[in-house]
């Protein structure tokens, strides 16, 4: 299974990846303004139907050293994606190559996936007459043709690399092993929600980058499935359906946090 390894210690924040994503996927620019919070450089503010990948700019003090670290928001491409389970029409699917892709022609616009996703990744085309859900596809068309995703190909420092998931995990472990003081000893995405196909390495705690650190190590899929089963069909009131899914997922996450004895909150801003 293919995956991306994002090593934020190698990222210089040039945002070639953000533009590469737009270029390859033909995503239009958003109208933006100077974004003061947290620190000016980040733009757009968040993922959207037009922006599938965002570099974040984080100032941190760790081990007595000031750091400016660049985080990466994009779809994590879960091994067992709850978005795909939540989708009533199977518009979202996990491909065996790794990417979680979607078929816009099938999408009903119900937004179950949005609530099912622990990373708040799928975004809704609010400005369209018949809005659909959109998100990063790990450039599935490129991957299928034997190419790297656009973000990985463009990265000057190989902060984003593409490869077999197990190779990338071995590489990540090797990097931590070789430079134990240079990294937080954790591969983000190796185990989170049962494992994802986007893995992260960092030199600062992942909360500093705005990543959720309260996620369980097992897949949320079973819970999503349960939630979907208690909803008769989409025609039932949307609010009820969404509420049910959301309730199950959030409870699952809460439980996970409890298991960790109430460790810090984090969460995407």
């Amino acid at each position: 299974m293919k995956a991306l390894l994002i090593d934020v210690t190698r990222c210089v924040g040039c945002r070639g990846c953000q533009v590469a994503c737009k270029e390859w996927n033909e995503l239009p620019a958003e109208k933006t303004r100077f974004f003061a919070s947290p620190k000016g450089y980040q733009n757009p503010r968040d993922l959207s139907s037009k922006t599938w990948r965002v570099v974040t700019y984080n100032e941190a003090q760790t081990n007595g050293r000031f750091e400016w670290v660049f985080g990466h928001l994009q779809c994590f491409h879960c091994i067992e994606p709850s978005c795909a389970t939540a989708c009533p029409v199977s518009a979202l699917q996990k491909t065996k190559e790794g990417p979680v892709v979607y078929d816009p022609d099938r999408c009903l616009g119900c937004r179950y996936c949005q609530l099912a996703c622990p990373f708040l990744v799928p975004r809704f085309e609010w400005d369209k007459a018949i809005p659909k859900i959109t998100k990063c596809t790990m450039c599935a068309d490129r991957v299928a043709a034997g190419e790297e995703p656009a973000c990985a190909k463009v990265c000057p420092t190989d902060a984003i690399v593409f490869g077999e998931r197990e190779d990338l995990i071995a590489e990540a472990e090797n990097r931590i092993h070789r430079n134990p003081r240079g990294y937080v000893h954790h591969i983000y995405g190796k185990d989170e929600v049962g494992g994802t196909c986007v893995l992260h390495l960092s030199n600062v705690p992942f909360e500093v980058l705005g990543y959720r650190t309260d996620l369980p190590k097992i897949s949320l899929r079973e819970y999503t499935k349960t939630a979907m089963q208690v909803v008769p069909h989409v025609k039932i009131g949307l609010a009820v359906a969404l509420g049910a899914v959301s309730w199950v997922i959030q409870r699952r996450i809460r439980n996970g946090r409890d298991e960790k004895n109430g460790s810090s909150s984090g969460g995407e801003s």
Binding site: R15, Q18, V19, K22, E23, P28, A29, E30, K31, T32, R33, F34, G40, Y41, N43, P44
Partner: peptide
């Protein structure tokens, strides 16, 4: 260029 205008839309003073 819209994509670059999006990334840095305004003058800023550090």
């Amino acid at each position: 260029l819209p994509w670059l205008a999006e990334l840095v839309p305004d003058v800023f003073v550090e």
